[in-house]
Amino acid sequence: MASEAPLSSRFFVLCDDKGGRHDTQFDKAEPVHRGEAPHCPRCGAPIGMLMWQPPYRVELEAHGQNLGDFAEGPGYDRLISERMAEAFQAEGLTGLLGFHPVDVVRVRGKRNGLGAGTVSRYLAVTACFGRAAVDEGRSRLSRNRPLTCPECRDPGVDAIHGFALEPGSWQGEDVFRPRGLQGRILVSARFASWVQRHALTNMRLIPTEEYLQP
């Protein structure tokens, strides 16, 4: 990948910390209602999965020693703990949408005797679709078909060996899905510093230039 490391190093891919001490995932519990998927405003192609609609009911999977502040599950939705949500809003970070309280109906794989009634409150959020665009010339991507829409740039990828964003395309969101890689959640350096300062758990932040998808 080409130079201009100062730009690319400001952004990280947000992943959960599978196998870590706070490894937490979730499944949506019935009844699961879904709305329409988001579509590109220019070409009309779907750029995301069907939107989760209320009621927001989940089953947690606790694979670590304690439940984490962040949890991945099916679709584009993520769960964050109440303390993470409060800190995010109090410090004026941007890019997360929703903040819908969820009903935890079950905790599977629990190691500390946690039941649904003793679990801290979680909220369902989604990352916004940002204006930041993947820089095809400075990224190492193997796409499964050529780009056809200059807006969504949405063909899937077979492999990623690091990527960068087009200079000037980012509009300041702390959490966002970039054009050209809508299936990934990116975060700013400010978000990365905030996670460390609050000791938030079950998150891995991988610099975009080091992100690998074989």
Results as ranks from 00 to 15, higher is better:
145 R>E: 05
141 L>T: 00
74 P>I: 00
75 G>F: 01
134 V>I: 08
76 Y>K: 05
128 C>K: 15
105 V>Q: 13
136 E>H: 03
72 E>Y: 03
91 E>H: 06
72 E>S: 06
98 G>I: 10
138 R>M: 01
134 V>E: 00
144 N>Y: 11
85 A>M: 14
108 R>N: 13
96 L>A: 10
67 L>W: 10
62 A>W: 09
74 P>A: 06
144 N>G: 06
84 M>S: 06
87 A>D: 08
129 F>R: 14
66 N>W: 09
139 S>G: 09
57 R>K: 14
73 G>I: 00
62 A>K: 14
109 G>W: 09
108 R>Y: 12
65 Q>M: 07
112 N>Q: 14
71 A>L: 03
56 Y>A: 02
123 L>W: 13
133 A>I: 05
64 G>Y: 04
95 G>S: 11
72 E>G: 05
134 V>H: 01
102 V>W: 04
106 R>G: 07
107 V>Y: 11
136 E>S: 04
83 R>E: 06
110 K>S: 13
84 M>N: 08
110 K>C: 15
78 R>C: 02
91 E>K: 01
123 L>I: 08
61 E>N: 15
64 G>S: 07
57 R>W: 10
101 P>L: 04
149 C>P: 01
151 E>N: 12
105 V>C: 10
81 S>A: 13
140 R>G: 07
69 D>C: 06
119 V>H: 14
57 R>C: 11
93 L>P: 02
102 V>F: 05
93 L>T: 09
103 D>I: 01
148 T>Q: 03
120 S>Y: 13
58 V>N: 09
75 G>I: 00
146 P>I: 00
123 L>D: 02
101 P>C: 04
102 V>P: 02
109 G>E: 08
65 Q>P: 03
124 A>Q: 10
74 P>N: 04
81 S>Y: 02
99 F>R: 11
112 N>L: 10
111 R>V: 12
68 G>R: 01
124 A>F: 02
124 A>R: 08
99 F>P: 15
113 G>E: 14
60 L>A: 04
59 E>L: 15
83 R>N: 06
77 D>F: 10
115 G>D: 09
119 V>I: 15
113 G>N: 14
111 R>Y: 09
146 P>Y: 00
139 S>F: 09
75 G>N: 05
92 G>N: 01
79 L>I: 06
62 A>P: 04
98 G>M: 12
104 V>N: 03
106 R>A: 13
101 P>T: 04
89 Q>H: 11
133 A>C: 09
60 L>W: 07
81 S>K: 07
120 S>F: 15
107 V>I: 11
72 E>M: 02
151 E>T: 11
111 R>P: 02
88 F>G: 07
141 L>C: 07
54 P>R: 06
89 Q>R: 15
126 T>A: 11
124 A>M: 12
96 L>G: 09
108 R>S: 15
87 A>L: 08
96 L>F: 11
127 A>E: 07
86 E>L: 14
119 V>S: 13
67 L>I: 13
100 H>P: 00
114 L>S: 15
59 E>M: 14
149 C>V: 05
122 Y>I: 01
140 R>D: 14
58 V>A: 05
138 R>V: 00
117 G>E: 12
83 R>H: 05
108 R>K: 15
62 A>E: 13
79 L>F: 05
92 G>D: 03
132 A>I: 12
147 L>P: 01
95 G>W: 09
67 L>Y: 11
78 R>V: 07
124 A>E: 07
132 A>T: 14
115 G>C: 06
67 L>T: 14
79 L>C: 07
141 L>P: 07
116 A>P: 10
